[in-house]
Design a protein around this nucleic acid. Structure first.
Length: 595
RNA sequence: GCGCCCGUAGCUCAGGGGAUAGAGCGUUGGCCUCCGAAGCCAAAGGUCGCAGGUUCGAUUCCUGCCGGGCGCGCCA
C-alpha cells in the first residue's frame, strides 16, 4: 500500500503527505504509528494547503503535550521537493504548504486521463438504484422530476466513483390505482357516446384521460360503449355531498368507485383488460419518453404484475407465514413488523383475499436480494418515510441482510414564480407536470436546479431564476466557463495532443495554482458525493471550479506570445474544460461549446 | 399525540468536533484599445432558533424546548 520511499512515484500531494506523516509517526511514537491519519484542507490560506490535527487528537492517549508532539513530528518529516513548508500552528496543528510543482502537476494528469479523470477504481460492488417508480396513472409532476434528477445523478456519480450500477423503475401495474385509471378512461370514453355516468371525484380528473378516451374512440368506435348508464351505476352507493370530508363520506366515495370498477369488469369482460392495458401502455410510454427527454434512463422497468404472475408474492407471504411472522385477524393476514421495531403490524393479505401493495413490495425486495446486489438504494418521496420500518422489517423477517438496503428520501420541490408559490393540487388535477417545467426552463436548468440541494432539504425552485440566461443563473455560470474555454481553444486552433507535452511547471501565479488545487480536489469530491449519496457536492464543486477559472482568466491572458507559456496555460484551460464537462455530464447537464 | 426532515447573512442555501463560519442572489462602488463583461475585483451584511450537557475545543455530537414542512389506511 504505502510506498517505502514516498519521494518516488507519487502523483497526489495528499498521498505524499500522508506517507510523510506516517513515517514521522513511526519515528516518534512507533507504538501509535497505526493511528488513522487525518489530513484536511484548511479554510484559511495562511494555514497552508493541508493540515493535520493528529497531534491534537492523540496527545492525550499518547500522554504528550500536543504542540511538543507536533514539533517533534515536524522535525522527523523528510524534506521533499513538493513540500515548501511544514509548521506547527495554533494549539498543535501541523500545516503543510505545497510547492507550486505539487499543484500544477495535476494538469498533465487531467489531460492524460481525459474524461476518466476523477473516476474511481472499480470496486466490484454491484449497486441497484431504484427511483421515480411513479404510478403510471398520469403524467410525471415536478416532484417526480426531483426524484428522477436525483436518482440519475446519484447513479452516475456512484458509477463514476467505481461501482457497478443498475438503474431500475418499479412499475405499479397491478394495483387498484391502475383499475381507477382504466375506469376513468372508460367513463370519459362513454361520455363521448352520450352515456352519462357522473364522473367520480376520486377518479383521475386530468385532461390526459379525456385524450386517451378520444384515441380509443377513434380506433375502435363504440365497441366499448354498448352499455347503459344504469348498468354502470348498478349497486353503487352514490357519491356523498362533495363538501363532506368526514370518514364516512370518504369511505362511501371509495366504495362507490370500487363498485364502478367491479361493474366495468363485469360489463366489459375481456375488453376491460384491453382498456386497462391500453391506459397502462399509454401512460408508461409517456412517462418513459418524458424521462428519456430529461436524460434519465433505466436499465430495467420492473413490473409489479410480474411478481404476481410468477407467484413471487404468494411465495413471499407463505415464507413469512412459515417463519411464524404472520397471524390472522379480522379475516386478514398481518405481518408482525412490530417484532422489528415498526409502530404497528401491517396487513399483507386483505379480508377479501387480495394482497396489499406492501405484500408485492416484500416480494419485490426479496427479488432484488435474490439478484445478488451488494447494495440496494431506494429513492422515495419524503411522504413515504413511514414505510421504511415495515420494509426493513420484512427484509429481516426473510433472513436477509438489512445493511444492504438503503432508502434516500427526497423532500418536496416547491415552485416559485414572481416570488410566489405556485399552487398545486393533485385532487383537482392542477399540478405542474415535469414536461411543463422542462418546456419552461429547459432540461439543463431543471437538472441542475433539482440537484442543487441535498435530497433531504426542501427545494425552492425559482422558475424566474432558472429561466434567466444571465450570471444570476448558476447553470449558465458553469456552462459559460466551458463555452469560454472552447472559444479560446478555437481561437488558438491547435491540437489537444500538443497540450499533453506542455510544461505545466510554468504555471506559478496564485490564481493559476488555486485553479490547479481545485482540479486536484475533483476525485475527492466524486468520492464524497458517492459515499454521502450527495450529488449536490458535484454541483457546488462545478460552481467553485468555474469561479476559479473566471478569476484566473481575468488576470492572465492565455494566448500569449511565448510558445511554452501559451501551451502551459492552454493546457490548464483544457484541463478545466475536461473536468467541467465530466462534472456537468454526471448531473445530466450539457456542456455547450458555445452559447 | 407519535415518527422523519429542516431552523446558518435581507433572500435561497453550502459546510461541519478545531484555528478569522462560506457561496450565489440582492445592495453599494470599481474593471472591456486586450482570448466571450453570460465575466472579474472590492465593500457591507451573522448571538449558526433557544437552553442545558459531553469535550482541551461545539455552529457541528447528545437531551429538552420553540418554530416550519411532511407523514402516521385491509391507498399505492
Amino acid at each position: 500500500m504505502m510506498s517505502q520511499d514516498p519521494s518516488l512515484s507519487v502523483s497526489d500531494p495528499k498521498v505524499l503527505l500522508a506517507a510523510l506523516l506516517r513515517q514521522a509517526l513511526m519515528a516518534v511514537v512507533p507504538q501509535y504509528a497505526h493511528l488513522p491519519l487525518t489530513l484536511e484542507r484548511p479554510k484559511a490560506a495562511s494555514h497552508g494547503d493541508w493540515a493535520s490535527n493528529i497531534a491534537l487528537q492523540f496527545a492525550r492517549q499518547i500522554k504528550r503535550n500536543p504542540r511538543e508532539l507536533a514539533q517533534e513530528l515536524v522535525r522527523e518529516i523528510t524534506p521533499h521537493p513538493w513540500v515548501a513548508k511544514v509548521e506547527v500552528a495554533g494549539p498543535g496543528f501541523i500545516n503543510f504548504t505545497l510547492a507550486p510543482a505539487a499543484k500544477n502537476a495535476v494538469v498533465p494528469q487531467v489531460l492524460a486521463r481525459g474524461v476518466r479523470y476523477g473516476a474511481g477504481e472499480s470496486t466490484g460492488r454491484r449497486i441497484l438504484v431504484e427511483f421515480v417508480s411513479a404510478n403510471p396513472t398520469g403524467p410525471l409532476h415536478v416532484g417526480h422530476g426531483r426524484g428522477a434528477a436525483y436518482g440519475a445523478a446519484l447513479s452516475d456519480v456512484l458509477a463514476f466513483a467505481g461501482h457497478t450500477v443498475e438503474r431500475e423503475y418499479y412499475v405499479n401495474d397491478a394495483g387498484r390505482q391502475m383499475d381507477i385509471l382504466a375506469l376513468s378512461t372508460w367513463l370519459r370514453y362513454l361520455e363521448r357516446f352520450g352515456i352519462r355516468v357522473p364522473f367520480p371525484s376520486n377518479a383521475y380528473q386530468g385532461r390526459y384521460v379525456i385524450d386517451m378516451a378520444a384515441t380509443i374512440a377513434e380506433r375502435h368506435g363504440d365497441r366499448f360503449a354498448r352499455v347503459r348508464a344504469e348498468d354502470v351505476l348498478a349497486g353503487t352507493p352514490g357519491e356523498p355531498d362533495p363538501e363532506r370530508t368526514d370518514p364516512q363520506a370518504v369511505e362511501q366515495r371509495e366504495r362507490h368507485l370500487d363498485q364502478l370498477i367491479a361493474n366495468a369488469k363485469c360489463l366489459l369482460g375481456e375488453d376491460y383488460a384491453w382498456i386497462h392495458e391500453f391506459a397502462l401502455a399509454e401512460q408508461l410510454g409517456d412517462c418513459r419518453d418524458d424521462l428519456a427527454e430529461f436524460g434519465v434512463r433505466f436499465d430495467r422497468w420492473f413490473s409489479e404484475k410480474s411478481l404476481y404472475d410468477t407467484g413471487m408474492v404468494e411465495r413471499a407471504v407463505e415464507t413469512l407465514k412459515q417463519r411464524g411472522y404472520l397471524y390472522e385477524q379480522d379475516g386478514a393476514w398481518w405481518f408482525r413488523s412490530t417484532d422489528f421495531g415498526d409502530d404497528k403490524d401491517r396487513v399483507v393479505r386483505r379480508e377479501n383475499g387480495s394482497y396489499t401493495y406492501f405484500a408485492s413490495d416484500i416480494a419485490y425486495h426479496w427479488n432484488k436480494y435474490e439478484r445478488g446486489y451488494d447494495l440496494m438504494i431506494d429513492i422515495w418521496g419524503a411522504d413515504h418515510h413511514g414505510y421504511i420500518p415495515r420494509v426493513r422489517a420484512a427484509i429481516q423477517a426473510l433472513g436477509l441482510d438489512p445493511e444492504k438496503f438503503e432508502v434516500a428520501l427526497v423532500q418536496f420541490a416547491v415552485l416559485y414564480r414572481n416570488g410566489e408559490k405556485v399552487s398545486m393540487s393533485t385532487r383537482a388535477g392542477e399540478f405542474v407536470t415535469l414536461r411543463q417545467l422542462r418546456a419552461e426552463v429547459g432540461n439543463d436548468a431543471c437538472r441542475f436546479f433539482y440537484v442543487l440541494r441535498k435530497c433531504d432539504q426542501h427545494l425552492d425552485f425559482d422558475l424566474d431564476l432558472a429561466k434567466k440566461q444571465s450570471n444570476e443563473n448558476p447553470v449558465y455560470y458553469v456552462q459559460y466557463a466551458h463555452a469560454r474555454i472552447c472559444s479560446v481553444l478555437r481561437e488558438w486552433g491547435g491540437a489537444m495532443e500538443d497540450l499533453r507535452e506542455a510544461d505545466a511547471s510554468l504555471l506559478t501565479s496564485e490564481p493559476a495554482l488555486a485553479l490547479c488545487v481545485r482540479l486536484q480536489a475533483f476525485p475527492e469530491v466524486v468520492q464524497a458525493a458517492a459515499a454521502e449519496r450527495a450529488p449536490h457536492h458535484i454541483a457546488f464543486y462545478l460552481k467553485d471550479l468555474a469561479a476559479d477559472f473566471h478569476a484566473w482568466y481575468n488576470v492572465e491572458r492565455i494566448l500569449v506570445e511565448e510558445e511554452p507559456l501559451r501551451l502551459a496555460r492552454l493546457a490548464l484551460a483544457a484541463a478545466v474544460k475536461t473536468v467541467l464537462a465530466t462534472g456537468l455530464g454526471l448531473l445530466g447537464v450539457s456542456a455547450p461549446e458555445s452559447m
